[in-house]
Amino acid sequence: MLASINRKLGLLIFIVAAIYLYLSFQLPNYQYAPIDADVIPKGLGILLLVLSVFLFFSRAVETDAEKAKRDIPKKELGVIAAVFAMIFVYILLFETIGFIITTSLFIFLCSWFLGYRAWKANILVSLLFPIVMYAIFVFALGIVLPRGILPF
């Protein structure tokens, strides 16, 4: 088990390096530079390939601390994935619906989802934060945030 995690990671990184290296070889030529745009990427790709092989065969023993970091319950990973999904939806709707509404909804729902049950405080913050930020950015700093469907 100990070795296998390094093996899996080594293999994954090997694949990434191989793809990168393949793409480096596809780069077009430019005739006027003694060191062309593909030289450094090719070097990096080869270096990463070598390092991934080292990692694969590495005999380093995983420390307990390292192992503890990896030891995450499936359910918790699900929570993180859900938060990422919420961020994704936020970004998706951010420019069409507008900053204030999406941000309010995000803060309220995300905090609720993560176990914040003081709903009055939650509503207060999720309304005040976006409005204050919007006011600072748009009116004081002159940085335009998406207005979306709101009239201001």
């Binding site: 938060v83 961020i87 936020y90 970004i91 951010f94 941000t103 995000f106 803060i107 995300c110 905090s111 609720w112 989802f113 993560l114 176990g115 914040y116 405080a121 939650n122 913050v125 999720s126 934060f129 976006p130 930020m133 950015f137 945030l145």
Partner: peptide, 13 residues
């Protein structure tokens, strides 16, 4: 939980 939401927002803005 609230802090987490706010940090996410800060980073996105």
């Amino acid at each position: 939980p609230l802090l987490i939401s706010l940090v996410i927002m800060f980073s996105l803005i």
